[in-house]
Structure formats: structure tokens, C-alpha cells
């Protein structure tokens, strides 16, 4: 078998459930025998992705594919899109609302943390249409 797939629907209305997919991914990777360090990177990337979709895009989907040599995480939403990707990648830059900041989120570390945790990060985005982020972590 060359690929194992996991699919999650990320609920946009709830911060409480953000992180559930990350926990599920951790458990599955552990059962597959993936190393602790790789599991940690995947769980951070996944968690940040979940939170981003809740904050900016009213939810979306996450698909995780495990290959013999890599883990691919695809996060897709139909949110507002990212007008300036380069700016969004800067640490500390955030467009989250005051309310989100008050909840302790929106530190502007989401995308930078996702980039740091993965070997490859690809952002496909169109303003008004949505965003698709593909992250690869090599085993």
C-alpha cells in the first residue's frame, strides 16, 4: 500500500474543536510508527492550519496523506484568500480582529510556524475565492 488518507472537516464556528484534527493525526502517526520529532512537526503544522481556517475562513477541510517517505497535509478553505502572501509569511503580521486577539490568538505566527514545521509549504490563494495550503514533512 502506498498511501494512507485521513480527511477532516474543520468546523468554522468553534475554537473549542480547533486542534481535534491535530490530535487525531498525532494518534494515527504514532500507530504507524512515525518518529516523535516528525509527529511533533506535523501536529504543530496541522494545529496552526486548523486555527487559521477557523479565524479567517469559517472552516474548511484538511486532508492528510501518509506515503512511505513523506506526509502531505492539504488544508483547503473558501475564505477571503490572502492578498499579499509575502506579507502574511512575516512573523508577527496578522489581520485577525481585535476580538480574536483578545482570545489569545492572532499573534501572526500561524504561517511562519507552518513553514518552520514543514519541509515544503505551498500556498495557492485567490482573493474572494479561497486558499489551499500544501505542506510536506519528509520522513
Amino acid at each position: 500500500m502506498d498511501v494512507f488518507r485521513l480527511h477532516f472537516d474543520i468546523d468554522g464556528g468553534s475554537f473549542a474543536s480547533a486542534g481535534n484534527a491535530s490530535v487525531e493525526v498525532k494518534k494515527t502517526l504514532r500507530q504507524l510508527g512515525v518518529s516523535n520529532a516528525v509527529i511533533r512537526r506535523c501536529s504543530i503544522a496541522m494545529y496552526e492550519g486548523e486555527i487559521n481556517m477557523v479565524i479567517h475562513a469559517d472552516g474548511g477541510t484538511a486532508d492528510v496523506e501518509v506515503y512511505p517517505d513523506r506526509i502531505v497535509m492539504v488544508l483547503e478553505d473558501h475564505g477571503p484568500g490572502i492578498p499579499d502572501v509575502e506579507l502574511a509569511m512575516k512573523e508577527g503580521y496578522s489581520t485577525a480582529t481585535e476580538q480574536i486577539h483578545n482570545m489569545g490568538f492572532g499573534a501572526g505566527m500561524g504561517l511562519p510556524n507552518m513553514k518552520r514545521s514543514s519541509d515544503d509549504l505551498k500556498i495557492e490563494t485567490k482573493v474572494g475565492v479561497g486558499t489551499k495550503i500544501t505542506m510536506v514533512v519528509r520522513l
Binding site: 500500500m1 502506498d2 498511501v3 494512507f4 494515527t28 500507530q31 504507524l32 510508527g33 512515525v34 501518509v66 512511505p68 520522513l139
Partner: peptide, 9 residues
């Protein structure tokens, strides 16, 4: 890993 993936499936 391949066997683990099969079992997971």
C-alpha cells in the same frame, strides 16, 4: 510502515 498503513486502512 507499508504494513502499518495497510492495517490502518
Amino acid at each position: 510502515l507499508a504494513e502499518a498503513m495497510r492495517m490502518m486502512q
